[in-house]
Simulated assay, not measured.
Amino acid sequence: MSKTAPTTDVHTITVQTETGQHEFEAKSGITLRQALRRHGHSPHNAVTNIANCGGRGHCGLCVVEIVKDAPPPTQALDSTLSGMGMGRLSCLVTIDHDMTVRL
């Protein structure tokens, strides 16, 4: 009988900002954008906080830098931005493990 590693439904997200480093826990399956906003860390600035697509992956305005443990992109726009070194769309990153992001 083989043993598999236990899975967890909660992951630690470390957020690096100009004011320091913050950690919070987020459930598996939600997007990084949802988790950031729920914990008071917006991937948007003052203008894009009002004018954005609401997390549907169309506007490209929720870009963050995943500095540790980035999952591979799963959608074309996210893959293109990542490939150009421009960051990742937080609305297209599904949380399934711990990671560190920079806003």
Rank of each mutant, 00 (worst) to 15 (best):
K3C: 12
A5G: 07
A5L: 11
T7V: 10
T8C: 07
D9P: 02
V10S: 10
H11C: 02
V15P: 02
Q16E: 15
T17G: 14
E18W: 08
T19G: 02
T19H: 05
G20I: 09
G20C: 04
E23G: 04
F24R: 01
E25N: 13
A26P: 04
G29A: 09
I30D: 07
L32F: 04
L32T: 00
R33V: 03
A35G: 00
L36D: 00
R37H: 12
H39K: 15
H39D: 09
H39L: 08
G40E: 13
G40N: 10
H41Y: 13
S42V: 10
P43T: 01
N45Y: 04
V47G: 15
V47F: 15
T48W: 06
N49I: 08
A51V: 15
C53E: 05
G54T: 10
G54R: 09
G54I: 14
G54P: 00
G55S: 04
G55V: 02
R56L: 14
G57N: 01
G57L: 01
H58T: 15
C59H: 05
C59L: 15
L61Y: 13
V64E: 00
V64R: 03
I66G: 00
V67W: 04
K68M: 03
K68C: 03
D69V: 06
P71R: 09
P71N: 11
P72A: 14
P73A: 01
T74H: 12
Q75M: 07
Q75L: 04
L77W: 03
L77K: 08
D78Q: 03
T80W: 11
L81K: 05
S82V: 07
G83S: 08
M84A: 13
G85I: 02
M86F: 14
M86T: 07
G87F: 02
G87I: 01
R88Y: 02
R88H: 03
L89E: 01
L92V: 08
V93R: 07
V93Y: 02
V93T: 09
T94M: 02
T94F: 00
T94G: 04
I95E: 03
D96Q: 13
D98R: 05
M99C: 12
M99W: 10
T100K: 08
T100E: 11
V101W: 00
V101N: 02
L103D: 00
L103T: 07
